[in-house]
Design a protein around this nucleic acid. Sequence first.
DNA 1: TCACCTAATACCTTCGCGGTATGATGAACA
DNA 2: TGTTCATCATACCGCGAAGGTATTAGGTGA
Lengths: 304, 304
Amino acid sequence: MDIRQLRYFIAVAEEANIGRAATRLHMSQPPLTRQIQQLEEELDTQLFVRTPRGMELTQAGTLFLAEARNIRALIEQATERTQRAGQGRLGRLDVAIFGSAILDRIPKLILNFRNEYPDVNVVLHTMTKAEQIAALRQNRITVGFNRMLAPLPDIRSEVIATEALLLAVNLNDPLAAQPALPFDALARRPVILFPSGARPNFVDKVLALCEARGFIPEVAQEVGDAVTGVALVASGFGVCVVPESATTLQYPGVAYLPFADAPADARVDLSCIYRADDHSPILTTFLASVRKSAALQDGAARGA
Amino acid sequence: MDIRQLRYFIAVAEEANIGRAATRLHMSQPPLTRQIQQLEEELDTQLFVRTPRGMELTQAGTLFLAEARNIRALIEQATERTQRAGQGRLGRLDVAIFGSAILDRIPKLILNFRNEYPDVNVVLHTMTKAEQIAALRQNRITVGFNRMLAPLPDIRSEVIATEALLLAVNLNDPLAAQPALPFDALARRPVILFPSGARPNFVDKVLALCEARGFIPEVAQEVGDAVTGVALVASGFGVCVVPESATTLQYPGVAYLPFADAPADARVDLSCIYRADDHSPILTTFLASVRKSAALQDGAARGA
DNA sequence: TCACCTAATACCTTCGCGGTATGATGAACA
DNA sequence: TGTTCATCATACCGCGAAGGTATTAGGTGA
């Protein structure tokens, strides 16, 4: 059996006339006759009774008509769905995110993507940087978000945004009264650092910034993530350098102050990472969407 | 797209290797490669990534594999069902029955058929003889059961069985004490006749039998069917000639007595009727089944 | 009885499927 | 690093089957 034969059969059944059906199928009558005969032969079942007025479906033919229509619809649907999947508009996308950047930028990026491609099932996984790289290599995720990545041959990374650094200060601290702080305010308070995970990380960044300004901060505590860091600030353990997006954390008793001298290097990147050899359409569409919304957010941020 | 291509695609997807798939499909590798390429081209979607170790499904390919399997299963099912319908093993059969013969023979015939062909949906319609013929001509039924049919050019009829006639007598009637009666007992009692519908009918039959024996019975009442007739016997209106199968009606106060002189013509036929030009398999199987069980019942009746 | 509709048949041409032979390419291994 | 082995892709050929034209067969209705 052949899908073409199904199409022919449906046409003949609907027209109840081979000649008209042939016209509708843009072909001549004899080959159509033969195809119908072959179909009947292959099924070993009479589908039509030939009358002088045309072709009349038998009971078996009526049943087969329903089945044939169903099959044809299914094929069309399969074609359409496969094409959409091939364009990255349908399917599943496993995305890894990390603790603190989930706070602001990433949810917006993902939300935009989901609005644009509602038939892509986005599954989020929280992972550390090292876990993300391992998961990418094992194909458990397609894309990850992270900061401060060392270059790797098989993993490509793309900077989505850079964020300014702010200082989280306890409201009881006199520093909190100022609109902005010099960077060396860090030298005068115990500092809470995060995360305590794989290097290079945000800790190194902060220490390097201090070193560049000629002091070594007093480290009050190293913690796992921004949320914990801010919590310790609220408890009066010290101050904590956080990226802009952490300000979404409206923790009572904590103020976020910009650095008055606004050093150009006091920024941190937000990157997305993926396999260098992954050319899947779903990744392609996701990256395109992320780049677009990142540019928009960036523009908005600069504009504001 | 082509069902053959679906088969090829499934094989390649399952083997993850064109060469092995070709072996499984009993063909060589190059045409299979080409068919897969054509399928991808037609769908405008990459279904596989080619690796030095073979063919690996893309996400779109994985989706299409599921769809393809589904479609193939549906096609197989459609084929199988259509074939069964073509053999008269699946479908719908509209059967007309009439009032009194429903009592015994016909339910057995239909029950046998339904046991043998459980996937045929038998729909019963109660109709008079005239209605049956009209319904046959309008294709509203496929087969009918009736008695005493005048021959018609477009309707074929087949005698399924003949039944002996019995006399239904009120138990208070002295006649009821006898084991059997002479036919002219009818001359000595008021007679209830049925049915009162279209001629020729059972009424004519009884009157003709009387006439052949030189008497005209006193007609107490003409009624529509055997059930009513027997009810009137129970009420003492008179006697009533009924076919054998009416004895299934175990009406209190009524005895069914055979005719002692057992006239060979005191029998009535039970026929089934159908369109002469109907060669549908479902009718064919039904008629075969009816003939078989009628022969069995007949044998059993004679044996007993 | 004839005209007209229907489907079926005969015969031809062409397209495409499948076959064989060969090429291109990356992986594994010495 | 070169060699070998596997993979899939390409080139080209022959044949079968699909579709086309012309015609026949058969039943209906005027």
